[in-house]
């Protein structure tokens, strides 16, 4: 009797052992690379359809030429030689890089202290501070550009304010429809893209590293340049790219606030695809812009790395 009961429990426990899974689940369980690709696949699909394919079309089109209202599809570098030889393109590119370069430097320089403050001196409700800083971005980009138009305008807030206090007699004309206006607006419009990466990189710095630097004889300034700044460099680089790349090609802000001096390459590309109706030229300009941005980004990365090594 005792023997039978023993074998019964054995028989019952055997199938309960490892629960079998389906074959696909089994393959996925064993193959981590495959699992990774599967997780990425929706994004990869969108990237391929939305970026790679249009880019290839753009690249091919840049080697075409305009013919009346259509395209001459024989491949030629004609557009590239034009961009190289005609000074207008170079001048526009140069101005675009200048404007968005200044806007990037101004934005990062203004946002760094804010991010620093929240990372090191705010101990409660950090999330609330972050949300408050991104609050301006809850309104549309266009609205913010128009708001700056009101502030910087000929009879705008600044000019009428200064005039009523008597500081100036005639409105300051350089405020609106100028490069200054574009830089101010871009710096404000892209601030969130600087604050967030800067905050993240500063927040990650181990506070005992700062104490160690102080302990080893560094005053606040030396400590900042030898520890805090190099360690927050990833955030600075990320912020710089996040602002510089999109602002170089921006066309809304220069179109609304730039005036003749403030027009950028983005406006010109838009014209090629619009009023001028020279799509191949627009495509060429886009490709050239991309190449230049890549080149500048590489130089920037190289320079920051060298600088980091030298500071250390």
């Amino acid at each position: 009797m005792a023997d039978t009961s023993l074998s019964q429990t054995e028989a019952r426990s055997a199938p309960a052992a490892p629960p079998r899974v389906g074959r696909i689940a089994g393959i996925l369980h064993r193959n981590e690379t495959l699992r990774g690709y599967l997780l990425m696949s929706p994004t990869m699909l969108i990237m391929t359809i939305g970026i790679l394919v249009p880019f290839l079309i753009l690249l091919v089109m840049s080697f075409w030429t305009r013919e009346g209202f259509g395209f001459d599809t024989t491949l030629t570098a004609h557009n590239y030689t034009r961009v190289w030889n005609e000074p207008i393109f170079g001048a526009l590119l140069q101005r675009s890089f200048w404007i968005s370069g200044v806007a990037t430097v101004v934005t990062v320089a203004l946002c760094y202290p804010m991010a620093y403050y929240v990372a090191f001196h705010v101990h409660r409700n950090k999330m609330m501070w972050i949300i408050l800083m991104t609050l301006p971005f809850w309104t549309s980009y266009l609205l913010r550009v128009f708001a700056w138009k009101v502030i910087l305008g000929y009879q705008g807030v600044i000019n009428s304010g200064l005039m009523s206090v008597g500081v100036i007699e005639a409105p300051l004309e350089f405020l609106l429809y100028s490069q200054t206006a574009v830089i101010i607006t871009l710096a404000h419009a892209w601030a969130a893209f600087a604050i967030l990466p800067l905050y993240v990189s500063l927040e990650k710095i181990d506070k005992s590293l700062l104490e160690a630097a102080t302990d080893l004889g560094d005053g606040p300034m030396a400590r900042f340049f030898r520890i805090t700044l190099p360690l927050s460099m990833p955030g600075i680089i990320a912020a710089t790219f996040l602002i510089f790349i999109p602002t170089t090609g921006d066309y809304i802000t220069p179109a609304l606030l730039g005036g003749p001096d403030g027009a950028m390459i983005g406006n010109f590309i838009q014209l090629q695809f619009g009023a001028i109706n020279n799509w191949p030229m627009g495509a060429t300009l886009s490709i050239v812009l991309m190449l230049w941005i890549s080149a500048i980004a590489l130089v920037f990365l190289f320079v920051t790395r060298k600088a980091q090594e030298r500071i250390a």
């Binding site: 630097a213 302990d215 004889g217 560094d218």
Partner: peptide, 16 residues
């Protein structure tokens, strides 16, 4: 602290 004639070994070592 940066002018004191003392130095510290931190619990987390704080290696840069």
């Amino acid at each position: 602290p940066h002018h004191r004639p003392v130095n510290m070994v931190f619990q987390s070592y704080a290696i840069f």
